[in-house]
């Protein structure tokens, strides 16, 4: 099967596995991008409030999700 027809088949597939897998991939992409951009904003001195406003979420939410992210290993004995 050529790549084009393969794609067309996947895109029009009613198989939930195909569609749900795309959702999972999209979520992973979203998480990667969010991590990257929040870290970048913090490095540039943005406050949690500013980041939260830009993402249209609460300050508490964004703080809880990202502020705890430390270099792994600071808490474990490595």
């Amino acid at each position: 099967m050529s790549e084009a027809t393969e794609l067309a088949a996947a895109a029009s597939s009613t198989d939930p596995r195909v569609g749900l897998r795309a959702v999972l991939a999209l979520r992973r992409l979203l998480e990667s991008l969010e991590t990257l951009q929040v870290d970048n904003a913090r490095r540039q001195g943005w406050s949690w409030q500013e980041i939260a406003d830009a993402l249209e979420v609460t300050r508490q939410g964004v703080h809880k999700k990202h502020a705890g992210r430390r270099p792994a290993g600071t808490r474990r004995e490595a």
């Binding site: 794609l7 996947a10 991939a25 992409l29 998480e31």
Partner: peptide, 27 residues
């Protein structure tokens, strides 16, 4: 003991994204 980090975006993700018209390599 310590697990591995979160799953990175792999080949399967790239293919799944392509099925909905998203080009992961371009991103």
């Amino acid at each position: 003991r310590v697990g591995a980090g979160p799953d990175p975006l792999g080949q399967a993700d790239a293919e799944a994204l392509r099925s909905i018209g998203i080009d992961l390599d371009a991103i």
